[in-house]
Simulated assay, not measured.
Amino acid sequence: MTEESSRGLSGRRGHAKRNDEVILTAARDVFVNDPSAPISAVAGRAGVGISALYRRYAGKEDLLRQLCLSGLHRFILEAEEAEAEPDGWAALVAFLGRVVDADVHSLTERLAGAFTPTAELREAAARAGELAARLVQRAQAGGRLRADVTPEDLALVLEGCAAIRVADAVRTVQLRRRHLALLIQGLAGPGDPSLPGPAPQPGELSRWRPEG
């Protein structure tokens, strides 16, 4: 392959990647606002033809799976970056703030049960769960996170923040941050009295369709 043709291929790939990002951004906006919206609404929002969209995704479920996978990848990235923070409590608080600001859990809250997960999605979810558990353990080991908090409690915190949504996007961010700050006060240890139980169990909060 010549240098010129290599540059052309790279350009085409770059253009395709940009188009895909535009489609995913549009899909996120459309489906968070209206989970029942047709896939044609995504094409319209993205400014692409429906055929261009179908060249990338077989249908709405395929698009939703990709959105969910992108969200899991962002969650994993934030959790991995938080692990570099030496203080366990500071790592957990920073992680929660970044995930809330990234609005990762709006899709979970709005699109629950709308698609069948793939093995890749389940693998990413397992990795996200492992990282969340490590963040909880580190914060508890340092004595700042109450001992009866579980990684599943974090999922409820994040979904609760994502459920806050008003017409003004800036105000939505402000309200979510305020709500998270209140919840973080409740997470701080040692905590008295104990949290009412039992705690959420692994898998109990899954929003995906069951296998089979």
Results as ranks from 00 to 15, higher is better:
Met1Tyr: 13
Met1Gly: 15
Glu3Pro: 01
Glu3Ser: 04
Ser5His: 13
Ser6Trp: 08
Ser6Val: 14
Leu9Thr: 11
Leu9Ile: 10
Ser10Pro: 00
Gly11Phe: 07
Arg13Phe: 01
Gly14Pro: 10
Lys17Cys: 00
Glu21Val: 06
Leu24Phe: 07
Ala26Asn: 03
Ala27Ser: 01
Arg28Cys: 00
Arg28Thr: 08
Val30Gln: 04
Asp34His: 04
Ser36Met: 03
Ala37Ser: 04
Ala46Pro: 10
Ala46Phe: 12
Val48Asp: 04
Val48Ile: 14
Gly49Cys: 05
Gly49Thr: 15
Tyr54Thr: 15
Arg56Trp: 00
Arg56Gly: 01
Tyr57Gly: 07
Ala58Phe: 02
Lys60Trp: 08
Leu64Gln: 08
Arg65Tyr: 00
Gly71Val: 00
Gly71Gln: 05
His73Met: 09
Arg74Asn: 02
Phe75Met: 05
Ala82Val: 09
Glu83Trp: 02
Asp87Val: 14
Asp87Gly: 14
Gly88Gln: 07
Ala90Met: 09
Ala90Leu: 11
Phe95Lys: 00
Phe95Tyr: 14
Leu96Trp: 00
Val99Asp: 12
Val99Arg: 05
Asp101Thr: 12
Glu109Lys: 10
Ala112Asn: 02
Ala112Pro: 08
Ala112Ile: 09
Ala114Glu: 03
Thr116Lys: 12
Pro117Gly: 03
Thr118Ser: 15
Ala119Tyr: 01
Glu120Ala: 15
Arg122Ala: 11
Glu123Val: 12
Ala126Val: 06
Arg127Asp: 06
Arg127Lys: 13
Ala128Gln: 02
Glu130Ile: 07
Leu131Asp: 06
Leu131Thr: 01
Arg134Thr: 08
Arg134Ser: 08
Leu135Thr: 04
Leu135Pro: 10
Gln137Pro: 02
Arg138Asn: 09
Ala139Asn: 04
Ala139Arg: 04
Gln140Asn: 03
Gln140Leu: 09
Gly143Arg: 11
Gly143Val: 09
Arg144Asn: 14
Leu145Trp: 00
Ala147Tyr: 02
Asp148Glu: 14
Asp148Ser: 05
Thr150Phe: 07
Thr150Lys: 08
Asp153Trp: 12
Leu154Gln: 06
Leu154Tyr: 10
Ala155Val: 11
Leu156Lys: 10
Leu158Ser: 03
Ala162Gly: 14
Ala163Gly: 01
Arg165Ser: 13
Asp168Arg: 12
Ala169Trp: 02
Thr172Cys: 05
Val173Thr: 12
Gln174Gly: 03
Arg177Phe: 05
Arg177Glu: 13
Arg178His: 13
Arg178Gln: 11
His179Gln: 15
His179Val: 08
Leu180Met: 07
Ala181Arg: 10
Leu183Trp: 01
Gln185Tyr: 07
Leu187Ser: 02
Asp192His: 15
Pro193Leu: 10
Leu195His: 03
Gly197Met: 09
Pro198Asp: 07
Ala199Gly: 12
Pro200Thr: 07
Pro200Gly: 01
Trp208Tyr: 12
